[in-house]
Nucleic acid binder design. Structure first.
Lengths: 292, 292
DNA sequence: CGGGTATATGTAGCCTAACTACATCAACTC
DNA sequence: GAGTTGATGTAGTTAGGCTACATATACCCG
């Protein structure tokens, strides 16, 4: 998508497939993002125990113009995660560094998503959503269930008939009641949640359009008609909730925004009505978030 | 918090208070982040119509070591927003640039939050949460209600007695049933949602500990005992859902992580049990997100 | 098995860009 | 109105990135 953003993933892709000496550089860089950003060509060459031109060649292999360009892109690439990850080394626990870890995880997941999502995948989903007679979002297990509800919450504001269901039995029942023109949108971090998978199969049988937001190579990914697939980086930090939910919300927001922009007049009117309905509850009227 | 992150705000702070020629440089930089990152000292000097040393002095005024250091920091500072904002200029609508807008909004909100949240605020909240006999999260209006449920979902995993309530009447009732040692955690984007505010007042009366996550200078902020306050940047993009929900989720994740780390053994055991309970539903067992 | 070619890597030198020291100029003070 | 301080530019130095070329290694084909 964006050249600058691909650097690290390209680095990871090429890792192992490079010339011997360039590989040394790659390994060194992968383990020392942070310092490489501030190092000179000579320093990197010395640290990786190769000659300077080898480092330059390595940069060019990655598609950069030279070492300078490489450093700039690397800086931009790791800027965010770097900040957070470096801080997390400091064993100064407490809440503030933990916030950094959480945000760092979100950034990492968001960047990963950004690299994988291709426009077509989302555009097809948008096409199906805007044309839907009714929209049913399903998810299970807290995280995905929450995303499903939030999705319904997003889309009803646009004047669409949207509901979320997080009861496994009810999901199957709702799926069975769908027909052509209806959309079933399944959300699952694992892509294996049994009730969700079955519901998609059922909806397929009855001719509904099935979308999903999940991992590649999962059962759900194979069954849905218009899958949105994102492989998110594993998170080692077992005490920290995964960032996948957040990325899923971002995707939902993206889809909702696209649909809203395709029908601006209707959307504007709905938002006006919703805002008016709330003015009574708290006096505020400005351009605030609608709905608290 | 982190030096690198302050560059642009420092620039904005100093804007107008600089020497005549350095001001020229500042103005130029503020309007050309994007190209400055790739420009040389000479190019910036020429573009701002000043001499090269003036540019260097300008960099030092901002607290950088020199032009190189300045450029690096600027690159890191604007890396994210730049990527996203630049893309949004391109009128190539479609879903991919919209994803960039959504992520850009999240980044902007997250950075804003990061600058405002001080450790003490969070640490006090963590202290109250870990000691709670029971935890009740309340929120209204879709977004905040979702965050409340997700919070309960996060904390029950740690072995705490956590519930979420998004029914305004029920919120008051729950609040009235609380006592000393219990925690009421109110979540509100506006800080004015009537039922939520009242519930906090009621809980205060009965001696429960009241926390909140909301805007500064709001009614809720004034009433809660341990407020977590974040002023989030207004979002002009009316069709795009606000990023405030996401930041609120990040704060909740942070609190949950801190509490989890304060009681590691108990948490580990709960997570093991929860994982085991799900193994039956989908065969996966690895270090995946727990609960789909 | 050996010569030739292609690819990988290093050496030495060049050139640009960042920085420094110094000079000049303007403004403000007493 | 002269002195002093601070702002700005000029010229020169240095270091770091890059190129051209040389050497070494591996691979292929007869």
């Amino acid at each position: 998508m964006n050249a600058a953003y691909d650097l690290i993933s390209r680095l990871r892709d090429l890792d192992g497939k490079l010339n011997a000496r360039e590989q040394r550089v790659a390994s060194y860089v992968l383990e020392n993002f942070g310092s490489v950003v501030e190092a000179t060509l000579g320093e990197v060459a010395a640290a990786a125990e190769v000659s300077e031109p080898t480092v330059i060649r390595f940069c060019r292999t990655l598609g950069c113009e030279g070492f300078k360009d490489f450093k700039l892109r690397l800086a931009q690439n790791v800027a965010v995660s770097l900040q957070y990850l470096e801080n997390s080394n400091v064993e100064a626990r407490g809440a503030a560094p933990t916030l950094d870890r959480v945000l760092g995880g979100i950034y990492a997941a968001a960047n990963a998503a950004r690299g994988q999502v291709d426009g077509g995948m989302l555009d097809r989903a948008v096409g199906a959503l805007r044309a839907a007679r009714q929209l049913v979002f399903i998810g299970l297990g807290g995280g995905s269930s929450m995303v499903a509800f939030e999705a319904a919450n997003r889309f009803f504001r646009l004047g669409l008939s949207a509901t979320a269901v997080n009861d496994g039995y009810l999901q199957r029942m709702r799926a069975a009641a769908l027909e052509k023109g209806d959309v079933l949108f399944a959300i699952s971090a694992s892509g294996e949640a049994r009730d969700v998978v079955s519901s998609v199969e059922i909806a397929n049988q009855y001719g509904a359009t099935t979308l999903c937001l999940t991992r590649p190579d999962s059962t759900l990914a194979r069954l849905a008609e218009l899958p949105i697939l994102i492989e998110l980086p594993e998170d080692q930090d077992i005490f920290k909730p995964t960032a996948s939910r957040i990325v899923h919300l971002a995707i939902i927001d993206t889809l909702a925004t696209c649909v809203a922009e395709l029908r601006p007049e209707e959307t504007r009117e709905r938002l006006r009505r919703i805002r008016a309905s709330l003015a009574a509850v708290h006096g505020r009227t400005g351009p605030q978030p609608i709905g608290d």
